[in-house]
Computed example of a mutant assay.
Amino acid sequence: MAPGTMLFIGEQKQDKARIDLMHYSGTVLHELRDVTVNQCAEFAKSPGITWINVNGIHDIRQIEALGKVFNLHPMTLEDLVNTTQRPKVEEFPHYLFIVLKMMSFSDMPSRLVMEHVSLILGKGSVISFLEDEGDLFDTVRNRIRAATGRIRLLKADYLAYSLMDAVVDHYFLTVERIGDRIEDIDEQILADPRQEDIKEIHQLKRDILHLRKAVWPFREEVGVIAKSDSALLHPETRVFWRDLYDHTIQIIEMAETCRDILGGMHDTYLSSISNRMNEVMKMLTIISTIFIPLTFIVGVYGMNFEYMPELKWHYGYCLIWGVMLAISLGLFIYFKQKRWL
Rank of each mutant, 00 (worst) to 15 (best):
Q337C: 11
I208H: 00
T76V: 15
V215M: 02
R259N: 12
P109N: 10
I9Q: 13
I198S: 00
R141Q: 14
C318I: 15
F92L: 12
S162L: 00
L270F: 13
L329V: 15
W216M: 12
H314C: 06
Y171F: 12
F332I: 14
Y307A: 08
D197I: 03
L121D: 01
G316H: 03
L136R: 05
K336G: 06
M281F: 11
Q62T: 13
L341E: 07
K205S: 12
F332G: 07
G330S: 15
D15T: 13
L153A: 02
V167I: 13
S118R: 03
R86V: 12
F92N: 09
I60R: 09
G4H: 06
I252Q: 03
Y317D: 01
V239D: 00
F240R: 02
T84I: 10
F43P: 03
D79Q: 06
Q62H: 06
S328P: 03
L130R: 01
Q14F: 06
Q203G: 12
Y334V: 06
N53H: 04
H202M: 14
I273K: 00
E31M: 07
T27K: 14
E196Q: 14
K88S: 10
T248K: 05
G56W: 02
S106R: 15
H30V: 15
L232I: 02
T248I: 04
R150S: 08
I292C: 04
